[in-house]
């Protein structure tokens, strides 16, 4: 059975999601920040984490975006193969949702139409859209607006197979160390291991949208996530980069098959304002 969905529904949902994610963090992020404020030992770090608590309260209560960089909208669309869209192009519908959300929600328009000419599009479009076709007749929309303070500190490393797990660990630590205060720590570190050049980067981005209270279902990956969070916290970067024991709120790692000659590792760093929401139609 083919299920028909009007593309205007995508527009409506995405518009609402843009506004919501920029004012309220997901419960896992909120809980991790609250916990960090308790466990941080640096007095200045504790003060900063306290400020972040106040910031979240003001953002939700007074409808002021959590961060002024309300991001470039990244949209993951998982489309069931039994779905038929009517009412116009899916891409246009997604961009219309972003446009409506960013304009009516008083969100910052941070997108320029061309990377060199740099003229602002004034409505935060276009979004970066990743499509995948899945079994079934449902559509899952994940919206993850990405701020560029942390995006600019993200990296792809094309390691050699001989570099192995130790090389992967060093790559993650290098990215985090170089990011330091620029990425607004405490950060969430999304990692993609394997695949190809672009697949690793996409996995790293997707990893950021996973609930940070949940580990990878793959045992060795879950172990690596725990170990890397601990190692990153030992760097001492701390809240705001001003020293402390809370540098990462979580490390989320996704993996995929790769080529006999390669070991791609992508590290997508996100600040403590790790915004994402998923809805199913």
């Amino acid at each position: 059975m083919i299920r028909t969905i009007e593309t205007s529904v995508l527009t409506q949902q995405i518009s609402e999601m843009c506004i919501q994610v920029n004012h309220c963090l997901s419960p896992d992020m909120e809980a991790a920040l609250k916990n960090a404020a308790q466990t941080e030992v640096s007095p200045l770090g504790k003060k900063i984490l306290g400020d972040l608590q106040k910031n979240l309260k003001i953002a939700a209560g007074e409808q002021i975006p959590i961060c002024q960089d309300t991001g470039m909208a990244v949209v993951f669309l998982e489309i069931g193969q039994d779905v038929h869209f009517t009412g116009g192009s899916v891409e246009d519908a997604v961009n219309e949702g972003v446009r409506q959300g960013y304009v009516s929600g008083y969100l910052r328009k941070s997108v320029v139409a061309d990377p060199i000419e740099r003229i602002n599009t004034k409505d935060n479009t276009p979004a970066v859209i990743h499509y995948s076709i899945v079994p079934g007749d449902r559509v899952r929309i994940t919206l993850a607006p990405k701020g560029f303070g942390s995006e600019n500190m993200s990296r792809v490393f094309m390691l050699k197979p001989a570099d192995g797990i130790e090389g992967v660990k060093e790559a993650i630590l290098t990215a985090v160390r170089d990011a330091g205060p620029n990425a607004c720590p405490p950060m969430v570190v999304g990692v993609g291991i394997g695949g190809t050049f672009e697949k690793s980067a996409l996995m790293a981005k997707q990893a950021l949208t996973r609930d940070i209270s949940k580990s990878s279902p793959v045992p060795w990956v879950a172990d690596l996530e725990r170990e890397m969070k601990e190692k990153i916290d030992c760097l001492g970067i701390g809240p705001g980069g001003l020293g402390g024991v809370t540098t990462a709120l979580a490390v989320n790692i996704n993996t995929f098959a790769t080529h006999i000659a390669g070991l791609p590792v992508a590290v997508n760093i996100c600040c403590h304002v790790n915004r994402h929401q998923t809805r199913e139609l």
């Binding site: 400020d51 972040l52 910031n55 953002a59 959590i66 607004c184």
Partner: peptide
Amino acid sequence: AAVGGAGA
């Protein structure tokens, strides 16, 4: 430095 991400 002001606290990054504390825009509200």
